[in-house]
Simulated scan of single mutants.
Amino acid sequence: MPRPCPSARLAGSAARRTYGHPVLGVSHATSGAALGLAVAGLAPQVVGTSPTAGTILTFAGVTAGAALLPDLDHPSSTASRRFSWASWLAAHAVRPLSALVFRLTRGPRDSGRGTHRGLTHTVAGALLLAAAVGVTSARWGTPVTAGVLFVCLALAIKGLDGLVPGPPSLVIAAGLTWVAEEKLPGGTAGTAGWLGLAVGLGMLVHSLGDAVTESGAPLFWPLPIRGRHWYPIGSPRPLRFRAGGRVEALLVAPLLTLGTLALAVYVVPGALDVLLDLRARLVTGG
């Protein structure tokens, strides 16, 4: 068997380092959480309803974790490694499926294999998974909501390891899922009908984030653009940056983190009171 050329080995090594980079997880998880907080916390107020803390935080937790799901098509990503054999099976189902769809729908100028930044990085792919989750949660209710929340929280927490490393994310996710269901005002019930939307938004915000990096993302598949059905949509080239690079580490990730925290304090009922009480306890030593 011929040995891979040095450039191919270096490219593979670089890809593994990039998709294992902690900054990527922080950016994806916080962008998903911020979008989830904005949608669940602000949108209902437009029609005159006041969402509960449980609804807002459940929705945001799902969008935060779902924002890591598109990278199931990369073997070194958080989503592909978080749940041991389950992640392995999911990744080894997604990659061949994405490659098959790519081969069946490629345009005359499309290149590559479609195994990464393929189907899971498209609007259509996000809508399909959102519809599946929405139908399933509507049919079976709380068990599906709790299961999806647990998986997404585990992914989001693991994605934040570079920011707040700590105990195993599965343990934390299980605890937070129980808290959301049993202790938060409103619980998770208010999210059941919107669970698919949370998953879809998380996947979309991931792909939009990838679109401002050097490679872009095929958001509008299967629409033909310049002879390509998998055309990588992106921001103007001077504004793009390398995934996991210094711009993301020093600017994008910190801003997303601060924005998410500020948004949580603003939209989650009682969050400001909790922070003020915590501050008072720290000051008084009580």
Rank of each mutant, 00 (worst) to 15 (best):
L219I: 07
A174R: 07
P96K: 07
E182I: 03
G65Y: 01
T145W: 03
E214M: 11
A189S: 11
F220S: 04
F83N: 08
A174M: 11
T58K: 01
L149P: 03
L100N: 01
A53P: 06
A132Y: 12
L263D: 05
T55L: 06
V171I: 15
L256G: 01
V26T: 13
S50F: 02
R240D: 06
P4T: 04
L72S: 01
R82Y: 01
K183M: 05
P185I: 00
T136Q: 10
A90E: 03
S87Y: 08
G187Q: 06
W230S: 10
V46E: 07
L204Q: 06
P143S: 12
L127I: 03
K158Q: 15
P236V: 04
V47R: 13
L10M: 11
W140P: 13
P236S: 08
L72K: 00
M1F: 13
H28E: 10
V212H: 08
M203W: 01
V265D: 05
A93T: 15
F241W: 14
P108E: 14
G20L: 10
A91Y: 00
P96Q: 08
S13M: 14
R281E: 13
T52Q: 02
P254M: 00
S215Q: 14
V148D: 07
G65D: 00
T188Y: 00
D71W: 03
G286S: 14
V39H: 08
G159A: 12
R242P: 00
P44K: 02
A173K: 10
V135N: 07
L278W: 15
F59G: 00
L129Q: 05
A29K: 05
A180M: 09
A217Y: 02
A192W: 06
G234Y: 01
V164R: 14
S7V: 08
L275N: 04
L176N: 05
V144T: 10
A174S: 14
G48D: 06
V151S: 07
G162V: 06
A249R: 12
G36C: 09
L149C: 11
L197C: 08
V39Y: 09
P167L: 11
A43R: 08
L223K: 04
P143T: 09
V23H: 05
T257H: 01
L35E: 05
R246L: 14
